[in-house]
Amino acid sequence: MEVKLFQKTQRDLAASINLVIDQYWDDSISEKEMIDLVQKLYINNEDKFKRNGKYTTVLRQQCGKRRLSVVSKVLNSSNVITK
C-alpha cells in the first residue's frame, strides 16, 4: 500500500489515517502493515497529530472516535512515545 509519509496539511494527514485504518478493517492490509504505517505517519507528522497532548481538532473531526481509538492504541503500545 502506498501512502505519503510526509503530509502537507492536517486534512491530508486525516485522509491518510482514514485510508490506512479503513483498509485494515476491510482486510486489505495486515495488522503489522497498519501499525507500521500509523507509526511512520506519527513520526513524520508529529506537529500535525497533536497539540497540547490532544489530537488536533481537524483530526478529531475528520477521523472520528473509532479510528483515533485505534491510532491511540497503536501509538501507546509501540515504541513511539506520545506526548
Results as ranks from 00 to 15, higher is better:
residue 14 A to L: 02
residue 72 S to H: 09
residue 26 D to I: 01
residue 12 D to S: 12
residue 58 V to G: 01
residue 79 N to C: 13
residue 29 I to G: 02
residue 44 N to T: 04
residue 44 N to P: 01
residue 77 S to Y: 05
residue 41 L to S: 01
residue 28 S to E: 10
residue 45 N to T: 10
residue 71 V to L: 01
residue 64 G to L: 05
residue 76 N to E: 11
residue 42 Y to C: 01
residue 59 L to Q: 11
residue 81 I to D: 15
residue 49 F to Q: 07
residue 59 L to V: 13
residue 9 T to H: 03
residue 24 Y to A: 04
residue 29 I to Y: 02
residue 47 D to W: 13
residue 23 Q to E: 13
residue 27 D to M: 09
residue 7 Q to C: 13
residue 35 I to V: 15
residue 6 F to V: 11
residue 13 L to T: 00
residue 70 V to I: 15
residue 47 D to Q: 15
residue 33 E to D: 10
residue 80 V to E: 00
residue 8 K to I: 08
residue 6 F to Y: 11
residue 15 A to M: 08
residue 79 N to L: 09
residue 12 D to L: 11
residue 20 V to W: 00
residue 56 T to L: 02
residue 59 L to R: 03
residue 73 K to V: 15
residue 54 K to L: 13
residue 7 Q to R: 06
residue 47 D to Y: 08
residue 62 Q to F: 07
residue 58 V to L: 14
residue 14 A to F: 09
residue 38 V to E: 00
residue 57 T to E: 15
residue 54 K to S: 11
residue 25 W to N: 04
residue 14 A to Q: 03
residue 12 D to K: 10
residue 28 S to L: 07
residue 50 K to P: 08
residue 65 K to L: 14
residue 71 V to W: 01
residue 53 G to H: 15
residue 44 N to W: 08
residue 53 G to F: 06
residue 18 N to H: 09
residue 41 L to Q: 01
residue 58 V to H: 04
residue 63 C to H: 02
residue 22 D to F: 07
residue 12 D to R: 14
residue 33 E to T: 03
residue 42 Y to N: 05
residue 71 V to T: 01
residue 82 T to M: 05
residue 34 M to T: 12
residue 54 K to P: 03
residue 75 L to S: 01
residue 32 K to C: 10
residue 6 F to Q: 09
residue 73 K to D: 12
residue 21 I to M: 04
residue 8 K to T: 11
residue 36 D to N: 08
residue 4 K to D: 15
residue 69 S to T: 12
residue 65 K to Y: 02
residue 10 Q to C: 00
residue 38 V to D: 00
residue 70 V to F: 02
residue 61 Q to T: 14
residue 50 K to F: 10
residue 56 T to I: 07
residue 78 S to G: 10
residue 74 V to F: 03
residue 7 Q to E: 13
residue 54 K to D: 15
residue 16 S to I: 00
residue 45 N to I: 04
residue 16 S to Y: 00
residue 70 V to L: 10
residue 13 L to P: 00
residue 48 K to S: 06
residue 44 N to F: 04
residue 9 T to N: 05
residue 58 V to Q: 05
residue 56 T to C: 01
residue 26 D to Q: 08
residue 37 L to T: 14
residue 36 D to M: 06
residue 33 E to F: 00
residue 19 L to V: 00
residue 19 L to R: 11
residue 7 Q to G: 00
residue 62 Q to D: 04
residue 55 Y to F: 14
residue 15 A to H: 07
residue 35 I to T: 15
residue 28 S to H: 12
residue 23 Q to I: 00
residue 66 R to T: 13
residue 14 A to H: 06
residue 25 W to E: 09
residue 48 K to Y: 12
residue 18 N to V: 02
residue 62 Q to E: 15
residue 58 V to P: 06
residue 32 K to T: 14
residue 82 T to Y: 04
residue 67 R to Q: 06
residue 27 D to N: 12
residue 5 L to V: 05
residue 31 E to F: 05
residue 59 L to T: 07
residue 32 K to P: 01
residue 70 V to M: 05
residue 60 R to A: 07
residue 64 G to V: 09
residue 20 V to L: 03
residue 55 Y to W: 11
residue 48 K to W: 04
residue 37 L to W: 05
residue 72 S to K: 14
residue 71 V to D: 00
residue 25 W to I: 11
residue 9 T to Y: 02
residue 11 R to Y: 09
residue 50 K to E: 15
